[in-house]
């Protein structure tokens, strides 16, 4: 599904990702953990195609295509989705208008007919239940005046609507209380399937109690320094990131 090789990325002239390699197979859930400033969010944003990230070297292949060559909307049409760490408030653009536009653009891209109003609404009602959001949120401006938890749920709702083959969740657990966390995790789990892959970017192990990953990677100083299964996350939770940073420092 996704193959990142030796990726090096700078932001404002400062190298953030420094030779990162990662393979995510179809249907797999990977957790990327690491201390603040290790490059986790940069990785998620580069894959989604946000401006301001300078790729110095390396490749990102998605379903065999050179992802870095595609515009962000085309990446979305190809099946990449980023759940933002800080979802953006967009006054004047209704949630439902964004979804309809995004969903139908992807369908046109795939050569499928656009959903008519009735089918679209049916889909919306089905998916919004997954994240236990009220329907009134559909008609409100995107994220405007939403609480932190509502914003994160809205991200997962959008994800459920767009049915991406690769979902990147950037610190989706941050700022959530336990009930909201369970709802968000439930939404993600409902999308898990043989055809869909998920990358969870997180600082804490807590989320992984609810979304159990197949692989856990530790990112430090711009590259993956340790990979393992879910037990690695437990070790990080118990021992912190100190030992990782020491060993990464020693390796460099």
């Amino acid at each position: 599904m996704l193959k990142i090789s030796d990726l090096r990325v700078a932001v404002d002239g400062k190298t953030i990702l420094n030779g990162l390699s990662l393979e995510v197979g179809t249907g797999e859930v990977h957790a990327i953990m690491g201390p603040n400033g290790s490059g986790k969010s940069t990785l998620a944003n580069v894959v989604a195609g946000r401006d301001g990230y300078e790729v110095l070297g390396g490749t990102v292949e998605f379903k065999g295509k050179d992802l870095l060559d595609l515009d962000p909307e085309v990446r979305a049409h190809e099946g990449v989705f980023l759940a933002f760490q800080y979802p953006v408030e967009i006054p004047g653009v209704a949630n439902i208008a964004l979804l309809k536009e995004g969903l139908n653009a992807a369908r046109r891209y795939r050569g499928e007919p656009e959903l008519d109003a009735l089918d679209f609404l049916k889909l919306v009602r089905e998916k919004i239940k997954l994240v236990e959001m009220k329907e009134e949120f559909l008609y409100r401006s995107v994220n405007e005046g939403f609480s932190g938890g509502e914003k994160k749920r809205n991200e997962i709702f959008q994800m459920a609507m767009l049915e991406p083959s690769l979902s990147l969740l950037d610190e989706t657990d941050s700022g959530l209380d336990i009930d909201a966390l369970k709802i968000v995790a439930g939404g993600v789990n409902s999308l898990r399937s043989q055809d869909r892959s998920v990358i969870l970017v997180t600082h804490y192990q807590r989320l992984l109690d609810y979304i159990v990953p197949d692989y856990v990677h530790v990112l430090a100083e711009g590259r993956i320094v340790q990979s393992g299964d879910k037990d690695l996350a437990l070790k990080l939770e118990a021992e912190g990131y100190g030992w990782i940073e020491e060993s990464a420092g020693a390796a460099a």
Partner: peptide, 15 residues
């Protein structure tokens, strides 16, 4: 707003 623009296109909306 560049960030709002990116948010929309990252959902598949054409630029």
């Amino acid at each position: 707003d560049d960030l709002a623009l990116f948010y929309l296109v990252s959902r598949g909306v054409k630029r």
